[in-house]
Design a protein around this nucleic acid. Structure first.
Length: 308
DNA sequence: AAGACGAAAGTGGTTGA
DNA sequence: TCAACAACTTTCGTCTT
């Protein structure tokens, strides 16, 4: 519903009234007197800065979660009274009683479909917001939206927050397309914690029978190594190490990020571009201890010697 | 002083009875 | 539903460069 009578300096070109009203749900500016729609995009949600890679975007982004778009009708909706009395308290005639009964029925129907629409719109906005923060390609966002719609169709949202389901759809879409983002990264921008997202994710994947390959640690390498400023040579070597590790079955049951981190650590030292365990563990979002454990293992089993 | 190391205790999720 | 279990984290003291 529209905000009540936000007065602006502008005048309606149709009727000359200055009672222009903003409808935030649709992003429209409307004349309250004659109903003319003046602009259908009075705000621009896009950032005023440009970013050329995800790091820059992270640094420049300062958009937080909106606080008050969750109350679905902002308490402004009208309800037809259940009593069969008119405004003067008199009984309503049987003929108009039947009419009013039909009106009530329709109002109920419209209101629920209205709420469903709104929830969907909210979820889509949430998908957009998160995926733009993570610089995800359009195709992933679309995939996430499709998953979300399926979840709605099968009534999987009930009992779960829209936010957590939206976030888990993004996670699922990323996993499906081999563009891995960690749960952490998604949780950073979603208004739900990692645990919640993980729970919804598992549930939805199970219920919708989405087939998801186990994450390959090599998928993380390009992103991590670019964040560490490592050369493509080192990057290549890290992938090589991981593939060897996979062949020897060293990766099963291990967290893919830990493996990726360890391989990058080894490769960076071999290539003379040493990064500290701390640096590597930071971009991979694991602890130094994990990096250490993994890299000790890899070093031992693959007979890699690092002379410092 | 920073980085690397490893022990020990704690956490959250999976599995199998 | 519960306990055992593996992977990973947190924390902290010690060693190395």
């Amino acid at each position: 519903m529209a905000d009540e009578g936000t007065k602006t300096k502008q005048m309606c070109p149709e009727c000359g009234s200055n009672r222009l009203v903003r409808d935030f749900d649709r992003g429209e500016l409307i004349c309250a007197t004659c109903g003319l729609v003046l602009k259908d995009k009075f705000y621009d949600m896009g950032p005023e800065w440009r970013a050329f890679d995800s790091e820059q975007r992270d640094k420049r982004g300062r958009v937080g979660a909106p606080m008050t778009f969750t109350i679905h009708d902002k308490g402004l909706s009208t309800m037809i009274d259940w009593r069969n009395k008119d405004v003067h308290g008199r009984d309503i005639s049987p003929t108009s009683r039947a009419q009013i009964y039909r009106l009530r029925k329709w109002q109920r129907r419209i209101r629920v479909s209205d709420a469903a629409e709104r929830n969907l719109a909210f979820a889509m906005a949430e998908l957009d917001r998160i995926s733009s923060h993570l610089s995800l390609p359009r195709s992933i966002r679309e995939a996430a939206a499709i998953i979300y719609r399926k979840a709605v169709e099968q009534n999987l949202i009930r009992g779960r927050s829209i936010e957590s389901v939206a976030a888990s759809c993004i996670y699922a879409a990323c996993r499906q397309r081999g563009v891995p983002r960690t749960l952490e990264e998604i949780a950073e921008y979603a208004r739900v914690d990692k645990k919640e997202i993980g729970r919804s994710y598992r549930f939805i994947v199970k219920e919708l029978n989405i087939r998801i390959n186990p994450t390959n640690p090599t998928d993380y390498i390009p992103r991590f190594s670019s964040e560490l400023g490592l050369s493509s040579h080192v990057q290549q070597r890290a992938i090589e190490i991981i593939n060897q590790a996979i062949d020897m079955g060293l990766t099963s049951g291990r967290g893919p990020m830990g493996i990726a981190a360890a391989a990058l650590y080894i490769a960076s030292i071999e290539g003379g571009e040493r990064r500290t365990q701390r640096d590597v563990s930071e971009v991979a979002k694991v602890t130094e201890v994990t990096v250490r454990n993994r890299y000790k293992e890899l070093q031992e089993r693959l007979n890699i010697n690092i002379d410092v």
